[in-house]
Computed example of a mutant assay.
Amino acid sequence: MTSPPPATPSTPPPSPSSAASRRALAAALAAGALGAAAVLVAAGRVWGEGTAALPQGELPVRVTGGEVTGLPSALALVGLAALVAVFAVRRAGRAFVAALLVLCGAGTAAAALSATRGGQGRAALEAEAAGATGLTRGTVEAVSFGAWPHVAALGGVLLLAAGLLALRYGRSWPAMSGRHERAGGSRPGAARRPAPGADRPEDLWKALDRGEDPTAGSGGNRS
């Protein structure tokens, strides 16, 4: 009668805290990448439109987000770099970089919204009208702004959310440098060194030439 095979120990299920940390890590990476991409794409789109009044008629003018203000794009790039740097530092440095990511996200959203609600958008349209007509200053009427500034602001909110997740769960996230560390601090090539007293290859060949078995005992009787 055969005995049943021994039961193999089952892998313990992940703790709720570690599962939440992994979900937060994935959410932060997705939010940060999507947020930065949304800001950079929106910066190249048309934000404002208007009509320049000229003696000979009307001239439509348009400005992109980058022409209105370059602050959202700059902050989004800094925020994206901060998101990557979160995994390159530890402890206090990680908290500092996460706080920088939060500030970049909040600043991006505020800069995108204030560019259309303040006078920056109209000033950019007037500068565009002046450049198109060759005048010192252009007068623009029927000014309107589309949805792209709000897309940029939404991207800033996503960067802000990524920073908040990094502040809350960043302590348990892995670091890039951990992949390059070796257990026990051993140096490369240390395991390949022969142990003291081990037979060298030339000694084994000499034993074979003498008709001895180098694997028996301590390598056979040597003269």
Rank of each mutant, 00 (worst) to 15 (best):
L135I: 03
W148C: 03
R137N: 08
A123P: 00
G134C: 13
A161Q: 12
M176C: 14
A127V: 13
V102N: 06
W173C: 08
G119S: 15
E181A: 13
T108G: 07
L167H: 09
V157A: 12
G184C: 01
G121Q: 10
A110Y: 14
G105A: 14
C104I: 00
P174M: 05
A142G: 10
G155Y: 12
E181N: 02
R192D: 11
A195E: 11
L165A: 09
R94S: 08
G156S: 02
A98K: 09
A112Q: 11
A130R: 08
A109C: 03
E126A: 15
R171I: 01
V97K: 00
A129C: 07
G119Q: 15
S114H: 07
Q120I: 00
A153K: 04
A127H: 14
T108K: 03
Y169W: 15
S172P: 05
G146V: 00
G93R: 14
W173Q: 01
R122W: 08
L167G: 03
F145S: 10
P196H: 10
S172I: 00
P196T: 07
A147G: 11
A109Y: 04
G93F: 10
G170I: 06
A98I: 07
R171M: 02
P188L: 04
P174L: 12
Q120W: 13
A195Y: 08
G119L: 15
S186P: 01
F145D: 12
H180L: 10
R182F: 07
A95V: 13
P196V: 01
R187M: 14
T116W: 13
E181T: 06
A124T: 12
G163N: 09
A130T: 04
A111M: 13
A147I: 10
A98T: 05
A152C: 01
A195L: 12
T133N: 07
